[in-house]
Design a protein around this nucleic acid. Structure first.
Length: 245
DNA sequence: TGCCATGTTAAACT
DNA sequence: GAGTTTAACATGGC
């Protein structure tokens, strides 16, 4: 699940703010008791991570591919990883990963300035961090959550296609202006993605290359292969997208 | 029905 | 020790 969707979930869950956790349950191997009796101070996302913030510590939820949640109901045939039980109501989280981290660490490790959907997104910082990965493949760098928090495999493929850069291009070989264009496009597309889902549009409405067979630009067959260290699938058109190598 | 994938982490290797 | 590969997790969709 990519950043824009997690942001929407975080916004949906803000109604839990101010609620006190009466008890907890679930299969997650964490010290759940530690949050019992505590009040939810905030709910927000940083990239793909969803944070439920309590005084001094936070629960970090990650949806991975197939995570989900239910508010005030159970999900049929699934066992919660974590349930937060309130005086009135319950929050259930399924699949994914649950962790408890302290708030100092949260602020230190999960930088809002690299979150493609954050108001504090800082393009100069993202450029600086990207340039440090000079000999890496751009397809891998785009998935680096310390630089492009919230960007997932779909956004990766779409933005590379939009700016016509081949996924196997090497960072230091890409002209800086072109790299800037790519960086701004990750932001632009992530916001578009967010707004589309908010407006109830179908998931995938704006995809041009992800999951496609034919390049919309030159009509050639789209390549589909696992690329880079991350070995995630890249959909790309070798004719339309230039290989900087 | 079986397999893949909007993803990450830790263990097991080399 | 560093780098790479595999396994595990969970489930909707094709």
């Amino acid at each position: 699940m990519e950043g824009p969707l997690v942001k929407i979930i975080a916004e949906t869950l803000t109604e839990l703010k101010g609620k006190r956790v009466i008890s907890t349950s679930g299969t997650a191997k964490i010290e759940k008791e530690i949050i019992e009796g505590k009040e939810i101070k905030d709910i927000f996302n940083r990239g793909k991570n969803l944070f439920i913030k309590f005084p001094s510590l936070s629960i970090k939820l990650h949806f991975l591919m197939a995570g989900s949640y239910r508010l005030n109901e159970e999900k049929e045939g699934a066992i919660p990883k974590l349930s937060l039980i309130f005086n009135k109501g319950i929050f259930n989280f399924y699949g994914g990963i649950v962790k408890i981290i302290n708030n100092n660490e949260m602020e230190k490790v999960y930088d809002e300035e690299v979150d493609v959907n954050s108001e504090k997104w800082n393009s100069e910082k993202v450029l600086r961090l990207t340039l440090q990965k000079k000999n890496k493949l751009i397809c891998d760098v785009l998935l680096d959550q310390n630089i492009f928090a919230g960007v997932g495999n779909i956004i990766k493929n779409e933005v590379l296609y939009m700016v016509k850069i081949h996924p196997l291009s090497i960072v230091e070989k890409i002209p800086e202006e072109k790299l800037k264009e790519l960086i701004f496009k990750t932001r632009e597309f992530s916001i578009l993605f967010y707004k589309a889902i908010k407006n109830g549009e179908k998931f995938g409405t704006y995809f041009k290359i992800y999951g496609k067979n034919q390049c919309p630009h030159c009509k050639e067959k789209v390549m589909k292969e696992k690329t880079g260290k991350t070995k995630r699938i890249s959909f790309f058109c070798p004719s339309t997208q230039f290989l900087y190598a």
